[in-house]
Design a protein around this nucleic acid. Structure first.
Lengths: 363, 363
DNA sequence: TGTTGGCACTCTCTCTTTGCGAGTGCTAAT
DNA sequence: ATTAGCACTCGCAAAGAGAGAGTGCCAACA
């Protein structure tokens, strides 16, 4: 767009400053601190034009200028890539990511916590949504009334469940069912597990006790759960750090929206994805009413098997886009590296656990 | 204690009213609405004495009265048991509890969410902390580089994990290890799994590839995780509903404390546990500095095997103790019933899942 | 033509003042 | 012992005044 170079520099300076201080930026301040070689009067003229063009606005006559969403958009599209994390920052970040990934519990939840912690904004993480299938079914016979179902899924995760029965089964039946399920239920997506299939399996196993349907139910439940994207929101309370949320009502509304798992998924509009894999949705660009004056930065990570997950950060429109984008980029890249390639983190898991044992002794 | 009956009634009325409105309660208001048969002047006298006794205080001369922690304490100890939930309320509550328990995912997290939702205060749930042991170990051979570890724990939960190896193993080794682990590692608590034990197992299996220690590490990690009480905090944002947290800083401080998993565990002082299993910790009675002007209501539930978990609710000292206590009581009782006795909820799990399958077709 | 200094003007923010009302404590009467 | 009445206190909200920041515009200058 035909904006003079100087206008761009001034716009960028205003936005940087506003992001830092959250206060309208005046011409004098700009002339003194932003190091563009001209006087406040000149800047005033330029500012006036930027207002006319729609990139800035003034809260009231005779206050400083504040960026409009359009201004932020320009900022994000044109000026942002300049910022990169220093090497040591990004190393530190990777270190912390590794640490999180080693804890074998709810990975995605802790990633969202990490993102929130790093950026000091609320963060959310969505697990990859992709059709999952069962790779392998094992049934472990425990006793006449008890067995364990173990499912290995297509993303190489394992789910298991203990089943107590009111009736008793013999080991042979468990064996038979195991074979039948492995041949009939593996490799197919949830929606192909029809009542028909279940019934025919039941007949083939000569199962009069409903065992088959218990197992099938667990498979269906597991597939559906694993295939449903799950959202984790963390650090909602960090909103309160932002001056624009000093109004408790405003903060409350947004927090409610977020902790309700408020869905943020932007319209997958074919933005000119200049910046690889990072999407920025500014204020009114959001579809959700609750987000109309907040911004969202979203990075997608590759979870292997063509699955994409998302990490996002929510903040006021006056959000530190560069910082957030830079950090999310590293985080998403690290996540992708870990998840799509082979498996767990580099090494050390095992050693760490052995060490841990000793630590625990103390407590 | 030697407080006249009327004083008690007045105190209770003040507290009830203050809980409702969050505003200092005046004598006139009390005379008109609280239905004690005397005039405002009389009440004024009584109020003055209650202030002298330390049950009430006035924010400033010539404002209404506000309960002190000591006042709340009296209220909790003496007047509270009166409130019971109506039958239908408690049925509704049980219904919702059942529903939550049926979702097989992180039960304890969703219980905490439920508690928060029901009371409209932040809630937290702690899993039972008790030494857990392994009941049974199964190793499922998948392919030369892959096997699945399945652990059945005391408490009848099952944990599993997929292990990829850089080297290849044969099925015989897996078999052998399975037997060894079942005889050597079952029934013993985490702290008895010594490096010594691991080494001797390793030798017995003639395992030169570190397989043994991978499995042992998983067992240790699992036991330690299952034995460590885990805290889930939900609904921190509901704090903002309370007028006492209109000050964002105050709200922020407490929310931070809470979402840091802030530990709330009250000193297990031998309170005269009149009210079965419900503990109320009022304002300054809390040990944590951050909670000094909040209150906590805690119910403990029985998770079987002598394990106790906690559900708690945090709010301002002006918290609706009766309501919270009543709801938590039902919740904890329901949880205990489900967890300690046998197993899953009454029935219907299976049917529900079959139904679910059809629903999912639509989407 | 683009840039700069100067100046009057506008508007918000903060501090102070003022008046009101709620609620108290005390006293005298029942 | 309870009640009615009354003077008093004190916080709070609305109103007013002053200060300061920043603008827009104009005239001068390169």
């Amino acid at each position: 767009m035909g904006i003079s170079e100087r206008k761009k520099r001034i716009l960028a300076a205003v936005i940087d400053e506003y992001i830092r201080t959250a206060e309208p930026v005046g011409s004098k301040h700009l002339a003194e601190n932003a190091g563009l070689g001209c006087s406040s009067a000149t800047i005033r003229n330029e500012l006036a034009e930027l207002v006319a063009l729609g990139y800035l606005e003034q809260p009231h006559t005779s206050a400083g200028r504040v960026p409009t969403p359009m201004g932020y958009r320009m900022y994000v599209n044109e000026f942002m890539e300049k910022q990169k994390l220093s090497l040591e920052e990004s190393e530190d970040l990777n270190r912390r990511l590794n640490q999180k990934l080693q804890e074998l519990d709810d990975t995605i939840g802790s990633i969202s916590r990490l993102a929130s912690q790093l950026t000091d904004y609320p963060a959310l993480a969505l697990t990859a949504a992709a059709p999952v299938t069962v790779k392998r079914v094992d049934l472990i016979y425990v006793d006449a009334n008890t067995f364990i179902i173990v499912l290995m899924l297509s993303g190489n995760t394992v789910k298991s469940k203990l089943v107590h029965l009111p009736v008793s089964v013999d080991q042979g039946m468990v064996q038979k069912l195991s074979t039948l399920f492995n041949s009939g239920f593996t490799g197919i997506p949830e929606d192909q597990i029809t009542p028909l299939l279940i019934h025919s399996t039941e007949r083939a196993a000569d199962d009069g006790m409903g065992l088959t349907s218990v197992i099938a139910a667990f498979i269906i439940e597991t597939l559906s759960e694993a295939g449903t994207p799950e959202a984790f929101v963390s650090g909602e309370n960090r909103l309160l750090n932002q001056p624009e949320f000093r109004d408790p009502d405003k903060a409350h509304r947004l927090m409610n929206y977020l902790s309700g798992g408020g869905y943020i998924l932007p319209p997958a509009e074919g933005e000119t994805e200049a910046d690889s894999e990072i999407r920025v949705v500014i204020g009114p660009e959001n579809v959700a009413e609750e987000l109309k004056d907040s911004s969202v930065v979203i990075a997608s990570y590759d979870a292997g098997d063509n699955m994409k997950g998302l990490i996002g950060v929510v903040g006021p429109t006056r959000m530190d886009y560069s910082m957030v984008a830079a950090k999310l980029r590293v985080l998403a890249a690290g996540l992708s590296r870990r998840l799509s390639s082979g498996e767990a983190p580099p090494e050390g898991l095992h050693n760490k656990l052995i060490l841990k044992q000793n630590e625990d002794h103390k407590s």
